[in-house]
């Protein structure tokens, strides 16, 4: 059962040294009674709270909290290409994503809020996710900018960003095939854990991030950089999809409530 996490980046180690020690002391991620560190059961998500339309200047914006991970997403566009025109696609819109973390988002102050390797990779993942979900063919020769900022980081940064950006894209009125909902799952003691928090992520769990279009059950992105036995992969993906569907219900609720508020304001 070689579920050994191989850390690819040294950055991760440097960022969370005390958690590494904590793991050596043997933090019990799933107790015999089935409780996780923060009191959740294996399949329970963290509390998700969200608001749409938090900024007036942008075309769309949203703020989303998933447990203690907080993200702000802003969408501009679709608008005409800016910067290098060579990237223009004549049959579809180009999606431009930028991910950044606030310097105060982690327990120790971050030196470089964006542009490091990890952020670049995350931006790329976001881009791939939204290219799969947004109906880009409706806006040829144009560009959609999605900016996401992590205000507080407590695990599952990618999924929180996706969820926040989905709301922002909807707020901007850009047509999408479906909500994109993302969730991380980990595998501990033969049990999949939904929606990992930071302590769990750094505690030596093989984790998997999955972005799903829930209605059709299509996977927009699946990412895993830990070792996991092949036999367990299916169960893990299954758990991730269930979790994503849970997230989608919450997002749907948020969108409907937002529409209600807006329609009251505009008097329709």
């Amino acid at each position: 059962m070689g579920n050994v996490v191989q850390r690819r980046t040294r950055g991760a180690l440097r960022r969370c040294p005390f958690e590494v020690c904590g793991n050596m002391a043997g933090l019990e991620l799933l107790s015999d009674q089935g409780y996780r560190l923060d009191g959740r059961k294996a399949t329970e998500l963290r509390k998700v709270q969200a608001r749409m339309g938090v900024f007036a200047q942008a075309d769309g914006s949203a703020y989303l909290e998933q447990g203690n991970t907080k993200a702000l997403a802003v969408v501009y566009g679709p608008h005409e290409m800016r910067g290098s025109r060579s990237r223009t696609r004549h049959d579809q819109a180009v999606i431009n994503c930028q991910y950044s973390m606030a310097t105060f988002s982690t327990a120790e102050r971050k030196r470089r809020p964006h542009g490091d390797r990890k952020s670049t990779e995350m931006s790329l993942h976001l881009k791939q996710t939204f290219e799969a979900a947004v109906m880009t063919q409706l806006y040829p020769r144009s560009q959609i900018d999605i900016y996401v900022k992590i205000l507080q980081s407590d695990g599952g940064n990618y999924s929180v960003c996706v969820n926040a950006a989905t709301l922002a894209v909807i707020d901007a009125g850009i047509p999408m095939r479906d909500y994109v909902c993302a969730c991380t799952v980990g595998f501990v003691d033969e049990t999949p854990l939904a929606d990992l928090c930071y302590a769990e992520e750094s505690g030596g769990v093989s984790s998997l991030a999955l972005a799903l279009l829930p209605r059709g059950g299509q996977i927009a992105l699946l990412q895993m950089d830990a070792r996991l036995h092949q036999d367990h992969l299916e169960a893990l993906i299954e758990a991730a999809m269930t979790a994503c569907k849970g997230v989608s219900k919450v997002l749907d609720e948020v969108v409907r409530q937002h529409l209600q508020e807006v329609s009251v304001l505009t008097g329709e």
């Binding site: 040294p17 005390f18 020690c21 923060d38 009191g39 963290r46 509390k47 203690n68 327990a107 407590d154």
Partner: peptide
């Protein structure tokens, strides 16, 4: 949800960690 505060030190430094508690 509730939140609890933990103070943990590493390499002599004190780090403040916020953890959720359900």
């Amino acid at each position: 949800t509730e939140k609890i505060l933990h103070l943990k030190s590493h390499r002599g430094r004190k780090v403040r960690v916020v953890r959720e508690h359900y």
